[in-house]
Amino acid sequence: MRRLLSHSELSKSRIVDTFLTSSDWDIYRRSLTGQISTSEVSDVLINAFKHVNRQRDEFVEIKEKSEKLDHNLSHLDKLFHKSVKRVDLIGQNLKKLQVSLSGLQELCCDEKELSSGIKAFTDGTMHLTDSLNDLNKYVDYEYDVDIKDMINYIEALRQLIRLKDQKQIDYEELSEYLTRSINEKNNLLSGYGSGNYFKSKLEELAGINQEMARRDKIAKLETRVQSLTDEVEKSKQVADEFEKEVLREVEQFEHIKTLELKDSLASLAQKHIDFYDDMVDKWSKIEQRLESA
């Protein structure tokens, strides 16, 4: 549910939250995924080994930082796992300690004071073990999920940026193609063919009318250039739009991430405070009890 919430916020920024509230969310999602699977995936495959040549500094920064964030978070995740394991072991040890102490208590039962002191201590250890377990479970299940969510969210952001890159790559490819076509056309217009002497000779031998072919070519190129210019124009627009959108999205991401981190940290701190306060309460009593004994 939390995950859905974080994603829903994401979708809210795209003004599709109406779909979330309406009942045909599933249909919408299917259509959404369908779109993605047909058009974008092939692009991804094609452009997998291509790099964006020209990039705005912001995106370089975003990429680097998101990578670092991801790295940090996964480390935190690992470390929390480790600590959870250790705390588990400590809990087991404390249980053993309880057993030993209750044995001791039995042994000392002729000494009322001491035995009740040991009893208090053992009970305290039991509480400690239980609460420690609870806290540990919280860290293991909930906080860990928070971290994982964050990692996924960052992953989503990175995918978005990759998508933006693809748009940009489209645009760059197109514009490259366009310049190549323009060059070719210009060459033809200036009269030196495509600059390929052998090719023109061959065509001459084949009895093709040089001039005709040239004019044909020029006309073809012209239309191509025309359509390409349109395309480039369009894709540039798309890329720019996308870039803007992505930047806005990143802002959104920042906002949501901050909120989310705040929430998760706050609840983590609260859980710890609850645990420690409760234990301080109990153990202070035990200490007093032992002091008075």
């Binding site: 920064e61 964030l69 990143v250 991401f253």
Partner: peptide, 11 residues
């Protein structure tokens, strides 16, 4: 380290 690099972009 996280506290130093918690944002992906300066907004």
């Amino acid at each position: 380290a996280f506290s130093l690099e918690n944002s992906v972009f300066q907004v």
